[in-house]
Design a protein around this nucleic acid. Structure first.
Lengths: 336, 336
DNA sequence: TTGTAAGCGTTATCAG
DNA sequence: CTGATAACGCTTACAA
């Protein structure tokens, strides 16, 4: 595929306009010191020929692309899409282009993405990947690429980070629950490969229960609405003794549990209480509304991108942003 | 920001290995005709120095990036994210990198994105933008960039297109509704800037009603769950005479209507029927389950990307893919 | 104000 | 099998 085959080059423009390439270059870069007449002439032939400068050549010559690499997990989750949306928004505003590096669930692959990021000559990177460890991310920073890391502890000269602080919020929620008379057994729904954020939540769940001297249950579930729904339907049909307070990592999973409860004839929240850790608007669209922790991922994306542009201009002051989840009290838990 | 400042170049590798750059180039490109010993030596120094070739320079020299431009609306909708997810998946598999061009709601802006796509030297492009007209898209094709256009009629040498054929499905739905005794007035929820796909649906809604000699109502609504919910709550509180069959463009809007109905004391589907045009999994998560048209956007994304890679290898046979929506019958409409 | 020419980091075509 | 050397399309001192 010769997609550049008949690309007009700066040289052709120069010839057609009867000037040197340097002049054309000056015109397209809006440099001063070009006679108005010449400028006009050049501009005319540029549009006449339909010339578009080659970003590639420019980048090579100037040592800067206007390109930001974004490393995200490929998983098709709403909250990732939201984050991307926030990044996108600011990128557009600041005139950056985004190059996407999506990683599947293996760390190997994630590492090869890091390689790719480096060869791609991005000006900066936003890394939001649950599989990557700090050492991996460091690699990219070591190439002197300003980087904003999301939900991953890292620091360095040209590194900023955005952190979701679920820990305190979850701890508080659990303590409150028991203090205010919550008496159902609490169960954390565990699934594989749901990322670091969720596994931190899980750890906190376990730890808090240990600290309280209570039993925190754990149950495996698949990351699919339908599977989870069916599993819980079976469970709940055996009777209300299987009820409890279920901590789910996503709205759709929480909805699976509460729908299963309802369809099995159990009452929410009397028999079954449900909480979602990563809440979206569906938390209040579903009925009963799902008690859930919310993080504005669009905003997180925006902030990541703002941090990065500051970093690119060497003017990032606060290198760490901490984002607190907000607790939305729905009808899937008992008001106490 | 000198992000390339201390980049190791092929030249440094050559010197360190005591060979010429040509040889290093051969090694990194896995060319034959390099003595095993030399190859080994070069590979060793490459890893020793941590050398990563510059994609930029490679692209400039070879006239090919391995980069696909993706033009999508910035709107943060699940179905767009799904599409992107499908594209991403195949891109990873085929070893392409994705560059994102997100367009906001103005056509001006969309056009400037097209410009950007061209300067960015992508090998191919997938264009999914509701604001762009055929003429606009043609521009990109005229630069000899193989392109797959989603939901936009275009053709040309290096152009493929993916089309969603809602028309027939909607027409059939409406006709069936009345034939089987549907007796509520049908209302189409109209919102601004929801894109070409939805406005085609709207046209079909109007046309089918004209053909049937029936009145198809139209109502403006905002593209927000909360607003729509509140508006319909007010409406429904006035009484069941305001019920009807409401055609909504998205699950969240459909959910707003059915939640409002329920909360206002109307019955779904007896008093209020609801249909969603762009269904997602939330159509069956919400209760009552929302009768909805479904298109597997992840798959659409995959297909777009497959088409494009075929196009890039000059081996695309079928240049048009038509995707039929599937109708999911939920509980938000009366079974007849 | 304008032109000349030396890079930017590769690949590719020649010779050797 | 290996090494010069000319592109690739553009920017940017330095000269004129």
């Amino acid at each position: 595929m010769q997609n550049l085959k008949d690309r007009i080059t700066i040289y052709q423009v120069a010839r057609a306009a009867g000037v040197s390439l340097a002049t054309v270059s000056r015109v397209i870069n809006n440099r001063e010191s070009v006679a108005p007449a010449t400028r006009k002439k050049v501009e005319a032939t540029i549009t006449a020929l339909g010339y578009k400068p080659s970003g590639l050549a420019q980048a090579l010559a100037t040592n800067r692309t206007t390109n930001i690499g974004v490393v995200i997990p490929s998983a098709n989750y709403v909250y990732i899409a939201n984050m991307l949306s926030g990044i996108t928004e600011v990128a557009r505003e600041k005139n950056y282009t985004l190059t996407l590096f999506s990683t599947s669930h293996s760390r190997e692959e994630a590492l090869s993405m890091i390689d790719k990021v480096i060869t791609t000559h991005v000006d900066g990177a936003i890394i939001f990947d649950d599989q990557l460890g700090p050492e991996d991310v460091k690699q990219i920073a070591s190439y002197n690429i300003p980087t904003v890391v999301v939900d991953n502890k890292i620091s360095g000269e040209h590194v900023g980070d955005i952190h979701f602080s679920y820990d305190a919020a979850i701890r508080k929620f659990i303590i409150d629950y028991y203090e205010k008379g919550g008496n159902k057994p609490m169960t954390f729904l565990h699934a594989h490969n749901t990322g670091r954020l969720l596994s931190r939540c899980e750890k906190q769940f376990v730890k808090t229960h240990q600290d309280l001297g209570r039993e925190g249950k754990m149950i495996n579930c698949s990351d699919s609405y339908t599977h989870t729904y069916n599993d819980f339907l079976d469970l709940f049909r055996e009777g209300p003794q299987n009820g409890g307070c279920f901590i789910c990592y996503r709205d759709s999973i929480a909805a699976a549990v509460e729908n299963a409860a309802g369809d099995a004839g159990l009452r929410v929240p009397e028999d079954v209480e449900v909480v979602s850790l990563v809440g979206t608007k569906y938390a209040y669209i579903c009925r009963p509304k799902i008690t859930s922790f919310h993080i504005d991922m669009v905003d997180a994306g925006r902030r990541a991108m703002y941090m990065l542009t500051d970093l690119l201009h060497d003017e990032l002051i606060e290198k760490t942003a901490r984002i607190e989840p907000r607790l939305f009290i729905g009808d899937s838990t008992i008001k106490r």
